[in-house]
Simulated assay, not measured.
Amino acid sequence: MKKSYKIDVDCANCANKMEDAAKRTPGVKDVVVNFMLLKMNVEFEDGENPKDVMQEVLKNCKKVESDCEIFL
């Protein structure tokens, strides 16, 4: 399953950090962060609950970039 989320991030480097952190989250198959569009496209592993996984993605992103936001 793929879903798209609106994000708020200050710079392209920060967006790259968010993408890397999200990719390391269990339950995430792939992530692409588009800084210009302020969007995060997430592909989830089969059988995963997107809401639960995205809570962990948000936590992991906040660890590397504290002022980022993902609008869930």
Rank of each mutant, 00 (worst) to 15 (best):
L37A: 12
C61T: 15
N16H: 11
N13A: 11
F35R: 06
M18H: 01
N60G: 08
N60W: 04
V53H: 05
A15W: 05
K51N: 13
K51S: 10
K29L: 08
N49D: 13
L37E: 15
A15Y: 08
M36T: 12
M40G: 02
K51W: 13
N41V: 00
K62T: 09
N16E: 10
L37T: 14
N49C: 14
P50L: 05
M40P: 04
C61Y: 05
G27I: 03
A15L: 06
D52T: 12
M18D: 01
V33G: 09
M36W: 09
V28I: 08
K51A: 14
V57N: 00
K23R: 15
K59H: 09
G27F: 00
M36D: 15
E45M: 08
N34A: 00
T25M: 00
M54G: 03
A22G: 06
V42D: 02
N60R: 13
C14Q: 05
E45C: 05
V28Y: 00
E48A: 10
D20Q: 13
G27Y: 04
A12C: 01
L38Q: 11
D20S: 12
L58Q: 13
E48S: 06
V32T: 13
D20E: 15
N13T: 12
K39S: 02
E45R: 03
V53P: 01
D52K: 15
D46T: 10
K23Q: 14
V64G: 01
V42Y: 06
N34I: 09
K59S: 04
V28L: 02
V28A: 04
N16P: 00
E56P: 05
L38K: 15
L37K: 15
D52V: 12
D30Y: 01
V57R: 02
V53I: 15
N34V: 10
K23Y: 00
